[in-house]
Design a protein around this nucleic acid. Sequence first.
DNA 1: TCAGACTTCCTACAGTCTTTAGGATTTCAC
DNA 2: GTGAAATCCTAAAGACTGTAGGAAGTCTGA
Lengths: 189, 189
Amino acid sequence: MARAGLNSERVVLAGAELADEVGFDQVTISALARHFDVKVASLYSHVQSSHDLSTRIALLALDELADLGAAALAGRSGKDALSALGNVYRDYARQHPGRYAAAQLRLDPETAAASAGVRHAQMTRAILRGYDLTEPEQTHAVRLVGSVFRGYVDLEMGGGFDHSAPDSQESWLRVLEALDALLRNWPVT
Amino acid sequence: MARAGLNSERVVLAGAELADEVGFDQVTISALARHFDVKVASLYSHVQSSHDLSTRIALLALDELADLGAAALAGRSGKDALSALGNVYRDYARQHPGRYAAAQLRLDPETAAASAGVRHAQMTRAILRGYDLTEPEQTHAVRLVGSVFRGYVDLEMGGGFDHSAPDSQESWLRVLEALDALLRNWPVT
DNA sequence: TCAGACTTCCTACAGTCTTTAGGATTTCAC
DNA sequence: GTGAAATCCTAAAGACTGTAGGAAGTCTGA
């Protein structure tokens, strides 16, 4: 019997691709086994469990997102940087909905600490260096910016902005402008 | 054999309670059958499918949230109203994490249109009547406010604000102040 | 080259959940 | 009370997870 030539990375990557096609919650070890034309039990040599598979896909997505973010931020500052990072998240969610969903998976603290999640926090903070904020206001602002990115993308992906007038792209640009203005005038009263 | 006295509402309510205890994704028809000490097949008289159960729990949560929001908004305006509605979402998520998760479930368009989701959009729009905004800026602002509420609560629930200095409550208050200032100075440049 | 040692993949099986079919029992309305 | 409807059941099939233990490739070193 010829071997399929599997390994952890290939399995996880296929899982990520499958997630983008059919949804993150539809990614099962069984489905991946079918994809590789291999028996289910075989995949347990490459992945510890279903939960382990989910976690690895999440880590892959966080990593990809952090790389894209870092690339987008290079050489930019101020509103330019703000928009660039926001667009990275939004575009990634549209192009890779399954991976984006995976990236929201709640990780246990140790895993999270070792993940690219840390880089994400640093990137948002880096943006704020273009504005004039000091602690603890900077942290409040980091949280606000993170909330807007996360919330807007989730709502848009969930279809929340579908059935009404100004289209989502327009609102997105306006939201970025508003956020930029807010940061420039921080601290607010 | 004595009957358990089940009906749709009781089953869905028990599902919502179970969701708060063990997580929305752990709510299964099997688990509910165990809870009512009834065979699994019996529940299919009250619920069409697992998906139907999830949807009904989501609708329940959306409804409860809309009622709480409406009550909180009564007699308030401006920043008062903004904070009140934001706190409704945030407090609900903390007190009923499973129900809150259910409320994020993506509904098919017809179900969504008939749900309390519509009231939620109206409430956010009602808040903006306390500020001086006209279309299409008002819609952009509605989307921004929704994004912040949704994003902040999700990140906080996901543990995103745990391991660093200013505590989340402090940031939340600051975020509400910032949002209020932003709306007062809208349109921004 | 070839004998371990290791890795990869398999069969077999047990446990859980979903869903349907069809039958029995309880309850309600007339 | 009797017939209809609602409630609950047994039975069974199909899907997914996970474990145990075995066979067949693959690699390494003498």
